[in-house]
Write a protein that binds this DNA or RNA. Structure first.
Lengths: 236, 236
DNA sequence: TCAGTTCTAGTCATTATGACTTTAACTACC
DNA sequence: GGTAGTTAAAGTCATAATGACTAGAACTGA
């Protein structure tokens, strides 16, 4: 790669460039246990810096799209997926995030449903990884994923985020599996049940899930909206 | 103001520019009741767009400083103050935030202590306003302040943010006044006391505050650290 | 029919919370 | 110098939320 002295000087004085990246979470059955676990799609860097390493999907912000639209777009472009939840995570702007130039990255995090996630594109340069086994990523992306995980766990405990991992109808055991996968610990089914039932956004459908090898569980529906984020506030 | 067709075309294709703004909160005694209330310093716009209107302090991000440093700097430059707490709020990047060009603003919010706040610079173009009586601000700054207020109230309820409004030593009544000012409602002194006492980060000094016209209250000290924010995580 | 499984409902002890009462310790005023 | 006024501090009580646990209901597969 050719780099003139003039280019270096330009880079030093040019305004920091602005990029959008996204941490995408989906639940997929673990290879071993079959229980759902957290997975994240990454893309392989095909040029320097960090050529060959895996990195979060991302790209520059184009002039005609909002930050959220840009995040949505690069989600679509890399994985072919539409997110069921999308929220801004943080703007990372440390001086030495990239060795070659100053980059400010506005990072989003997203949840996708398993039906979607099953259809996700995968290729030589796009692959899904278990969130707890990522290895060394490009740039500061390990730290970014850690923070996204922290936020996801937090939101799960307070807010009503878990349902965006699931389809329209779900059993309480499925909700519990989401919590167990994300928080990485077992929860008491009876107590968990009591808590979820008591939240007003959860509606009992008359239906039952048939086909299990045990008592058929009731199916529920989520009736709430996300919204806390400024971007999601006015959206109806 | 002169604008050539070429300039318009350039603006339309140029990358979005990046700015840092800060919502600064301090408690000051209300003029009437003397009780502490929330105040915010604003700067007057001296050029278009929104010339004459009040706006959040801010400016461009320079090449050699981190986002947090830039926020600190424009805090220092506009008010002369050093923040006791500084955290990233959100990156605002809507397409039409500014009528003249595309601007992405990374906004921080800060708390300053009253001893500091008393020394704050004020001038023709820098003035403090009560947070609940701001009037119409430039750009989308009303929405930004609303969101900052929401975050402040949230952090107060969960985290241990209140002490950054206070000096090193404080009485429990002073802590309660902070909560009452921010949450804008009265709290039961006895119950509030019980809660604060039970948090491990609060340490009872042997001292008492003398000089009141009633029983002298104990003085306490805060021993915790902020840190949740990625920027504040590794900072010791 | 019975063993195995999960779903669902319920009990019980512990803890946190809100409303309230009482006593302590100081000042100011008559 | 006594008393009223004020806030600090400690404690009571009922209610709500939580975690650990028990037991019956409802299905499948052998």
């Amino acid at each position: 790669m050719y780099t003139s002295a003039a280019n270096v000087a330009e880079r030093r004085t040019a305004p920091p460039s602005l990029a959008i990246s996204t941490v995408i979470f989906a639940l997929r059955p673990s290879e071993k246990s079959g229980r759902p676990t957290l997975w994240i799609p990454l893309v392989r860097r095909i040029r320097e810096p960090f050529k060959g390493l895996w990195a979060l999907p991302g790209g520059p912000l184009t002039h005609s799209e909002s930050l959220q639209d840009a995040a949505s777009r690069n989600l679509q472009e890399t994985t072919g997926l539409a997110p069921s939840y999308l929220e801004q995570l943080y703007a990372f702007g440390g001086l030495h995030r990239s060795p070659t130039q100053r980059v400010v990255s506005i990072v989003y995090w997203a949840l996708v449903q398993p039906t979607e996630a099953a259809l996700a594109d995968e290729s030589e340069n796009v692959r899904w990884f278990r969130a707890d086994r990522l290895g060394d990523l490009a740039f500061d992306h390990n730290a970014i994923v850690d923070y996204a995980l922290w936020r996801l766990r937090n939101k799960l405990a307070y807010g009503s985020i878990a349902y965006h991992f699931l389809g329209e109808y779900f059993t309480l055991a499925q909700v519990r599996e989401v919590y167990e996968a994300v928080l990485d610990r077992q929860l008491d089914p009876a107590n968990f049940r009591r808590q979820i039932i008591s939240t007003p956004e959860i509606e009992e459908t008359g239906e039952y899930l048939q086909g299990g090898k045990h008592r058929p569980p009731r199916l529920y529906r989520f009736t709430g909206r996300p919204g806390l984020d400024p971007d999601n506030r006015s959206t109806p």
